[in-house]
Simulated assay, not measured.
Amino acid sequence: MDRLRGHRSKRWWLLAVLLALWLLMGPNRAWALCSVVSTSPAGFGTLSSILVRTTSQPASTTNAGLACTGSLVSLLASNDHFYATITSSQSGLLGPTGDVIGYTIYANNSTSYPITRGVQFDFARNSIVDALGLLGSPTVAKSIPLYLGSITGSNVAAGVYSETLSIAWSWNYCAGIGALGACLGRDIGSGVASLTVNLTVANDCVITAPNINFGSAPVVSAFATVSGQTINLACTKGSAYTVGLGDGQQALGVGGRRRMVSGGNYLAYDIFKSAGTTRWGSVGAARRASSDAEVNPGNGLGTGSQVFNYNARIYTDQATPPAGTYTDNVVLDVGF
């Protein structure tokens, strides 16, 4: 009888151990699993060359190639890691003429955690993985995003700029947590994803065009020619363009004499190319090409100015209108 009781005690002890193991590995467990997936491109969009040079521009990708599913509450230990090593054969976004636009890669949507190319960055640190909830989605795979910021100072030509980044992922973390918080297993893996980054640079100009002031005179024949006037243009590097001056608001037909107005009275005037008598207009040959600039003729310089001279005169073959302040508004346009 005593021997029988001993066997029963052993059976109950064995059942208790099996029950504990079932609780540890059964329905209360939580697992996570990661894999390398296809990325989503990161695009800066279309930006003027001036914005690219003067102001940092943001871009991002929602998927940098690592996606995870699971139901873990992320409590990553010091021996857990999610490494990303980013490399490229280029030093930035390469354009059609060989110009390069630099940019910085960040691990979050601020500038707190820049990623250095060729150096492992651990997304398990600084609570980045926790903030993303990367391991806490049991049904939908969540991916790691990346954020980009262009570096100012690039004087570049117009065109499409691109770079393909190679992102080597390596992860090792506790992927299964039991009812008592014990680690039931680790998810260990690695893989390489390719990420395309692109930016389109558009032509643009910075224009400096001072107002024309004829001063005052009692009769039209007493108005002096306004000479030595200049229009300065700093246009996209390598751009060939033309500059046109509109006919103003009161012109006598297309390409006709420009006129200033005061009330219902008019004072005819015009603007001429350089120091000559050829009218500067907005259509066809009346425009001026970038190669016609008096200073730095040719294609745009990006950071340097090209200078166009002109003179303006009041027509003296008109009757002197009544006294008043006469004004007009002329549109300057640049065509690429």
Rank of each mutant, 00 (worst) to 15 (best):
F123N: 05
K142Y: 00
G149V: 01
N126I: 02
S112C: 04
I86C: 03
Q90G: 02
N126H: 12
T152G: 06
I144D: 05
A141T: 12
L134Y: 06
P96Q: 11
S71I: 01
D99P: 09
G92Q: 01
L132P: 01
G98M: 03
G133P: 03
L75R: 12
Y83N: 15
L135S: 02
I144C: 07
L75W: 00
T97G: 09
G95P: 09
L148W: 11
D122T: 04
T97F: 06
S78Q: 07
T152S: 15
C68W: 04
G98P: 11
I101Y: 11
Y103V: 10
G159F: 07
I151S: 15
D99V: 08
N109P: 02
S150H: 11
S88M: 02
G98W: 01
I128N: 05
T139V: 14
S74N: 12
V140Q: 12
I115L: 10
S74M: 08
V100Q: 11
V73P: 00
L135E: 03
G118E: 04
D130G: 12
V119I: 14
C68V: 02
T152C: 09
R125A: 12
I86N: 05
D80K: 10
A141W: 05
L146S: 01
G136S: 15
L148K: 05
S71Y: 01
R125N: 13
G118R: 00
N126E: 13
I101N: 06
S137D: 14
T116F: 07
A158M: 06
L93H: 03
G70M: 04
A158I: 01
F82Y: 11
V140N: 13
F82N: 09
